[in-house]
Nucleic acid binder design. Structure first.
Lengths: 164, 164
DNA sequence: GTCAGTGCAAACTTTTTGCAACTAC
DNA sequence: GTAGTTGCAAAAAGTTTGCACTGAC
């Protein structure tokens, strides 16, 4: 099972990371890692909290989630994004590089891939800077909102749908 | 004076925007626009608040700053970023397109330009999506932190300087 | 004169922190 | 045994909201 392989691998990476840094290997940390690697796409702390509770039946405090995520980011197993109000995260091991397209009206985030773009970014020469990762956010209006706008064009109202 | 020209132009754009949207032309709104266009680089709401108070001697509430910034973003005169904890903004009219290089250790943000990159991004075909603007954030370790790390490599400590 | 806009304070949301209890080592 | 971790609750930080007052139109 491909998915299980990835989980095993990241568990091993995390174990090595914890050992190297002199951190403890607590059950909470591995449960969090496991849950994160069963999520496709983005998630925030709250949805992770709920998912662990409901689907994995594992109760951790939000404080521990925040603490552990910092370690996972440092271990390069998780990437942090900041689109809307709350921080969004995603697993990063064994994932294809992708970019983000964000609708400024409804807040919907779509991923897309583009090799040329990827190459251009990675080939960028940066002086005195050790590149670790990057995020490209493209903002605009998605097709759905675009159509919705055309319908109610007469009114001068700004429609601000709540993100999230 | 080049800078004054820009200020006059954006004031005119904003005036037209407000008229078109049926919003009022209040002194607060123009004072905020003027202050923003006298700032080079990024700022957050709090520093804008303080700057208006101290340097322009103009007192506005934070609520008004938030309200007005939304209008300015909609009028395409300001761009919003989300690096650290609080939202960062910057003027966008008449500014060269640039990208951001962020040090994950000290949080320092540096701007850089790269035409090839810019072209690659702008040429990206997005289906059913009306591009408005984009942000490329490149994360890594800056030269300064890199050197600092080498010095204290023996200790296994993670140095987490507070961003902001 | 009217209603959009403002200031203020309270509310809300997300994240951080202090501390007692717990447990990996 | 003991220091690193956890959970909890309180605090902090950033942003939004409700409401009375003000002023642009």
């Amino acid at each position: 099972m491909e998915n299980q392989n990835v989980k095993d691998t990241v568990k091993q990476i995390f174990t090595e990371y914890l050992t190297a840094k002199g951190h403890r290997k607590t059950p909470e940390r591995f449960a969090i890692l496991d849950t994160i690697y069963s999520i496709d796409g983005h998630f925030d702390i709250d949805s992770l909290y709920l998912r662990m509770m409901e689907q994995q039946n594992f109760r951790v405090s939000r404080a521990t989630l925040y603490n552990t995520i910092i370690l996972l980011i440092d271990a390069r197993l998780v990437i942090k994004h900041q689109f809307g109000n709350s921080s969004q995260y995603e697993k990063s091991y064994n994932r294809e590089t992708h970019h983000h397209q964000i609708c400024t009206q409804c807040g919907k985030v779509t991923e897309f891939q583009n090799e040329e773009l990827q190459r251009a970014i990675e080939n960028t020469k940066l002086s005195r800077f050790q590149l670790s990762h990057y995020s490209l956010y493209i903002y605009g209006v998605c097709g759905k909102c675009e159509r919705a706008n055309k319908k109610k064009k007469k009114t001068g109202n700004i429609t601000h749908k709540k993100e999230k």
